[in-house]
């Protein structure tokens, strides 16, 4: 049956319409859980607020389990699901740059737009900076092209690289996530800040 677009069950346009509604829902939940505050994201770095880490890890393992079970029941063909191609070196460099930006700005692109839409000045400035960065990268692309395209590894999955089945890797990731949640709550107790 799935993926829905690849198998022509819904059209590209319906897909965009669904994405629009899901996006509104996502933004609403982000805002109502307090992610529009820059302290939420910066807190992960300083250890006093690990909600972001917990939320995104929970989302990842939920989606992962959902896909694996849907594949097991024959509802989705995993071979047709797009796997983002991996460029190892640029992923590391990009991760460091983005991470530094997240700590300094206190937003990620999603929460930045979320904060900007409720009128937070820091979030508006962050979003402006985001576009400046995007244009800077686009116009100076030739400077970065070599780094950007270094070590292309294709659509590689961790489970393939480790030589284990997708299901076994899922279990390992769930256990890792539980360990991280435990460590996160320990960190929140260890580095407390006053309520805000």
């Amino acid at each position: 049956m799935g993926p829905l677009v690849a198998n022509g069950i819904i059209s590209e346009n319906t897909n965009l319409l669904l994405a629009f509604f899901i996006g509104i829902g996502f933004g609403f939940v982000l805002e109502s859980s307090g992610f529009s505050s820059s302290r939420k994201l910066a807190g992960v770095f300083y250890g006093y607020d690990m909600v972001v880490l917990k939320v995104f890890f929970t989302a990842a393992i939920t989606a992962m389990l959902g896909l694996l079970f849907m594949s097991l029941f024959g509802w989705v063909d995993l071979d047709q699901v797009y796997v983002n191609p991996l460029f190892l070196r640029s992923a590391i460099v990009g991760g460091v740059v983005m991470g530094a930006g997240f700590i300094m700005g206190g937003f990620c692109p999603g929460t930045g737009i979320c904060g900007a839409s409720i009128g937070k000045i820091d979030a508006i400035l962050f979003s402006v900076g985001l576009f400046v960065g995007v244009y800077f990268f686009a116009f100076t692309y030739s400077w970065w092209e070599k780094l950007y395209k270094a070590t292309p590894l294709g659509g590689k999955k961790v489970s393939d690289a480790l030589g284990m089945s997708d299901g076994l890797f899922a279990l390992v990731l769930i256990l890792v996530a539980m360990g991280m949640f435990y460590a996160a709550e320990w960190a929140e107790k260890k580095f407390p800040r006053e309520e805000y």
């Binding site: 393992i61 389990l65 079970f69 089945s165 279990l171 769930i174 256990l175 996530a177 539980m178």
Partner: peptide, 9 residues
């Protein structure tokens, strides 16, 4: 989640 993970593994 852990039982689900055990099943899928």
């Amino acid at each position: 989640l852990i039982p689900l993970g055990l099943i899928i593994a």
